[in-house]
């Protein structure tokens, strides 16, 4: 399929790199201001090199890239909150043109799910968003397979940065600030870690899960969120003495959607360490399903996008 990729961060770049391996052609790439277009297929190395060296993806504008001809729009620009713009506009334009959309950007489905669905209903195009929750972990395809109505609850560790910090605090008895600095040094945490450590990122993922599983629409405002930045090392130590540990857990069930630090069994399924993610599904007929793996990263998230593209081809 011919792909137009919006966003040239880790995920966008990985999509450009991997597309050919999966039999797709990237015909347009846009970052926040520039664009590259070639109806016969862009050379991925040329585009990525220009981005690296000159900070532009090509000599066209981003708008020209968006207006070009493609089969699927891959939206991998940074997630924005509230009106989820400009990503929502990109989704809307693609659907108006009866094109399919694959999202890595969480904004449109976390903040404006009903709007996205309404546009999708009026379009020949479809919207898929496996990459928005837990990177490479097949969350929505699992829900599709089990049946959304047969999934009674989903919970899990959905943010690798927060999990890394809690793991380090536990293993080394570090204070939060110390573990955060370490995470920033090795590139696991951003300079401004708020989005991850205050639970916003996990909450957006839970809102998306809530939207897929429940009858009502969820946005970030509907999620009860507590982060991990206040947790003292002594709390983790007390947990450990008792055979437990603390993890930032997102929970989605019929009582609502929430994200917060929870006590879990130290050796239990949910106590993944480092940047690992885990998603646990409670199902009506199939018991509990656990899937763990890498919840972030360019090639990991791009792999989820490739899965969506395969579904769209079928």
């Amino acid at each position: 399929m011919k792909l137009a990729v919006v966003g040239a961060g880790a995920v966008g770049k990985a999509v450009v790199e991997l597309a050919e391996e999966y039999g797709h052609t990237v015909t347009a790439v846009a970052d926040s201001s520039t664009g590259a277009i070639d109806a016969n297929g862009l050379d991925s190395e040329t585009v990525l090199q220009r981005k690296r060296n000159d900070g532009v993806v090509g000599s066209a504008t981003a708008q020209e890239a968006l207006d070009s001809s493609y089969d699927v729009l891959v939206e991998a620009s940074p997630t924005t909150l509230d009106d989820a713009q400009p990503a929502f506009g990109h989704v809307q334009t693609a659907l108006d043109r009866d094109r399919d959309v694959v999202l890595a950007n969480k904004g449109p489905v976390a903040e404006r799910y009903a709007d996205v669905q309404a546009r999708e209903r009026e379009s020949e195009g479809r919207v898929r968003f496996e990459a928005t929750v837990a990177g490479a972990i097949p969350v929505f395809s699992t829900i599709d397979n089990v049946g959304a109505k047969q999934v009674t609850a989903v919970r899990g560790v959905l943010n690798g940065t927060a999990n890394f910090i809690l793991s380090r605090m536990t293993a080394e008895g570090l204070a939060y600030e110390h573990a955060l600095a370490e995470a920033q040094d090795i590139g696991v945490a951003e300079t401004d870690p708020t989005f991850d450590v205050e639970g916003t990122d996990a909450a957006l993922k839970c809102a998306i899960l809530g939207n897929v599983l429940m009858e009502t629409e969820f946005t970030l405002d509907d999620v009860s969120v507590t982060g991990i930045s206040e947790i003292p090392a002594s709390a983790l130590e007390l947990a450990q003495q008792d055979g437990s540990t603390i993890r930032l857990i997102g929970e989605v069930d019929d009582s609502g959607v929430r994200v917060g630090p929870r006590l879990v069994d130290e050796h239990g399924t949910l106590a993944v360490t480092g940047t690992q993610n885990i998603v646990q599904f409670e199902t009506t007929h199939a018991g509990t399903l656990n899937i763990s793996g890498r919840g972030a990263g360019g090639p990991e998230t791009a792999t989820a996008i490739m899965g969506d593209l395969r579904e769209l081809e079928n």
Partner: peptide, 13 residues
């Protein structure tokens, strides 16, 4: 004060 609650449902609670 803040409370860290146990995860009260599921196998791993």
């Amino acid at each position: 004060l803040s409370v860290v609650e146990p995860l009260t449902t599921g196998e791993s609670a």
